[in-house]
Simulated assay, not measured.
Amino acid sequence: MSQTELLIMPILKHSASSATLQQQVPSFSAFHKLPTELQILICKNAVTRTEPIDLSKRVNQRPPEVTHVSKFFYTEGTKLYYRENTFLLPLPSRLAREENLHLDQWLCNSTTTEICKKMSKIVVQVSLPPDRSSLANLILLATHFQNESSEEAKKTIKLQPFITVPAEMEAILPVPTVATELETHVSEAFWRVFDGSLQDFAKGSYKIDWVDEEEMEMNAGVPLLERSVALGRICEELWLAIMNVWHPDS
């Protein structure tokens, strides 16, 4: 046997075994005969990930492709995907512009409300000092829990505050998480606003205190503008609440 043949043989064997496997997979029909507990365990392993699922990636904003294998995988796999995984809303400042845009679009989508309710754990990264874009994402997410109290919403949403450093220093200084005690205080500041202004905003009953008559004449009666003004006011309220924790003596 020549040297060329010796080199090619392993490749041919691998190709043959791959082809055989591809022929066998579609013909496997014993899965439904397995005990239900074993079917669910297999399905759970197929859709569960060890790391938090980054929702800024568009591919993660829907169940994985394996859920389309069969009706069982679609029904059980979709439930397990949302129940067993941890989902991450990262700091917007860390995202590429295109990814951040995808995340904004997803959070503003009306169908996201039902998807969020299926999730058992969502970790939201918030920058300290407060970054308005990360707070806006947090507010958008909170609107999907408009009919729940903070006690109920807290079972799903967990805030993960991060101390941010200037971009030019990121290569030298890591971005540390904050101490557990400070994280607790920041979360409490957010949930106080959640039970007040955020709930009113989500239910459409938020009353805007206009700065002056000119601002009211420019924006009043235009739903999109009123929503933007209301969102800005709540961002400011949340920003002040967190800053009081961040700089309690200021």
Rank of each mutant, 00 (worst) to 15 (best):
K13I: 13
K13W: 04
H14G: 00
H14K: 14
S15P: 01
A16N: 11
A16R: 11
L21W: 04
L21R: 04
L21H: 06
L21E: 03
Q24C: 05
V25I: 15
P26I: 05
S27D: 12
S27E: 12
S27C: 14
F28V: 06
S29P: 12
F31N: 01
H32W: 06
H32E: 09
H32Y: 08
L34M: 03
T36N: 04
T36C: 12
L38G: 03
L38M: 10
Q39F: 10
I40M: 09
L41Q: 05
C43N: 03
K44Y: 02
K44N: 11
N45V: 15
N45W: 05
A46Q: 00
A46E: 00
A46V: 04
V47T: 10
E51C: 13
P52Y: 06
I53G: 02
D54K: 00
N60M: 00
N60W: 00
Q61W: 02
R62I: 09
P64S: 02
P64L: 02
E65Q: 13
T67W: 13
T67R: 13
T67A: 12
H68V: 09
H68K: 08
V69Q: 05
F72T: 05
F73L: 14
F73I: 13
T75N: 04
E76W: 12
G77L: 07
G77R: 06
T78S: 12
K79T: 06
K79L: 03
L80V: 08
L80E: 08
L80P: 04
L80W: 11
Y82Q: 02
Y82F: 08
R83T: 10
N85E: 12
T86L: 15
T86F: 06
F87V: 00
L88P: 09
P90D: 02
L91E: 03
L91W: 01
P92Y: 00
L95M: 06
A96Y: 10
A96H: 13
A96W: 11
R97Q: 04
R97T: 08
E99L: 12
E99R: 06
E99A: 15
N100E: 04
N100G: 15
L101F: 09
L101A: 09
H102N: 11
H102K: 12
D104R: 13
W106T: 01
W106A: 01
W106F: 09
L107C: 04
C108R: 13
S110M: 15
T111P: 00
T113N: 07
E114M: 06
I115P: 01
I115Q: 05
K117P: 04
K118P: 01
M119Y: 06
K121I: 09
K121V: 14
K121C: 14
V124M: 06
V124H: 14
Q125C: 12
Q125R: 12
Q125L: 06
P130F: 04
D131G: 10
